[in-house]
Amino acid sequence: MSHTAHIPSHRKPRQRASKSALRAGVAGGVLSTIAVAGAAGPAQAEPVTQTIEMPTITSGFSTAVAASAQATQQVALDLETQADEDAAAEKAAKTAKKAHAEAVRKAEAKKKAEAAAKARAEAKAKERAERASRTAERTTLSASSGSSDSTGSSASAPSSSSNVSGSAASIVAFAKAQVGDAYVSGGTGPNAWDCSGLVQAAYRTAGIDLPRVSQSQSTAGTQVSLDNLQPGDILYWGGAGSAYHVAIYVGGGEFVGAQNSSTGTVQRSLDYDRPTGAVRVL
């Protein structure tokens, strides 16, 4: 026996190398080739483990992901900016529409105001013409009453068949001249009256001072029947001493009075609004 017979050999049997290669091939596809190459010689095992550069692949992937995230963020910012611009444009459109509507409203209001001013001017001109006509009528009646006083005869009111004295004619003429004037509570002329203000002013033309309010005017003279009225008599509505309205009888079954804010000063038949009683001051 050789003196080296008991020393085991350091060479691997080929059969074991084949089995290792087979196992490696079954275990891992491409890695089996690497395993076989490693079994053929220890010098080739080390380079194989260094050919996989995972850090380089991972680094490139991270860069791509980062770039994709940045691109996504930019798209989001762009969309947000576009949304803000769209909202601003919508707000500007609404503001412009509102401004246009306001301009149209102001233009219409101005047009209406101009039309109303024109109507008022026309009404005023008409009122002045009517007042001039009434003044002329009053002057004529006053002249007629003066002629009647100087001759001792009586004159008739235009709308009455009764004889009218000078003072009564003056009162009637004044009252008729105010027909068409406005009614204003507390009004005492010259273009607006309440009922007792008109009666007081009419009697003042005859030199007679009456109390200011209708309650006192309804007891300022002698009570007379409505069937025995004379031009110039004071008509009242309500009780004597508690009347709420007064007017002047102008003859011919008619009266003149400042009725209310809707009608103003009017000349009406007694049947239009039958009075409660009458009082004679003259």
Rank of each mutant, 00 (worst) to 15 (best):
A192N: 15
S185P: 14
P13N: 13
W193F: 14
G187C: 12
T205R: 03
E114D: 06
R120S: 03
A177W: 06
K126N: 12
V224N: 07
S145P: 00
T263W: 14
Q217E: 01
L226P: 00
R131S: 15
A66R: 08
Q217Y: 00
S32I: 11
A109I: 13
G60R: 12
T219L: 12
R128I: 09
T135E: 08
A136C: 06
S242W: 00
S218D: 06
Q74F: 10
A67K: 11
G252C: 10
S216G: 03
A155S: 01
G257D: 03
L229K: 04
A89R: 14
T49Y: 14
S242M: 00
A182W: 05
S165W: 03
G277F: 06
G238Y: 00
G253R: 10
S59A: 15
L282P: 00
S2H: 13
R134H: 15
T81C: 08
G251Q: 05
L282H: 05
A243K: 00
G25K: 10
R120E: 07
S218E: 06
A143S: 04
D86P: 12
A240M: 04
K124T: 07
A129L: 13
S261L: 04
A136F: 09
A240N: 02
A37R: 08
P211R: 02
P42L: 14
A143D: 02
A39D: 12
S145L: 03
L22Q: 01
V224K: 07
G252D: 11
A37Q: 05
R268Q: 12
S160I: 07
E137V: 10
S242Q: 01
D271M: 01
I234C: 01
K19F: 02
Q74L: 15
Q267I: 10
H245P: 05
P47R: 13
R11W: 15
N228I: 05
F255C: 12
I248L: 08
P158Q: 02
S153K: 08
E46Q: 15
Q200M: 11
H6Q: 11
V104N: 09
A109E: 15
G186L: 13
H245L: 09
P42Q: 15
D271K: 03
V184D: 09
G277A: 06
V279H: 07
A201T: 05
T72F: 11
Q223N: 15
A175Q: 05
V48T: 08
V104E: 12
S160C: 06
L229M: 06
E108A: 13
G264H: 09
R134A: 12
A87M: 09
E85T: 11
S150M: 04
P8C: 12
V246E: 06
N228R: 10
G187I: 06
P158G: 01
K112W: 08
A123D: 02
I57H: 14
A67R: 10
S159Y: 09
T72N: 15
A129M: 13
H100G: 08
A21Q: 02
T58P: 12
A202R: 04
R138A: 09
S147A: 14
N260H: 10
K91E: 13
Y249E: 02
I248T: 04
V246K: 03
E114C: 01
S133D: 07
I34W: 08
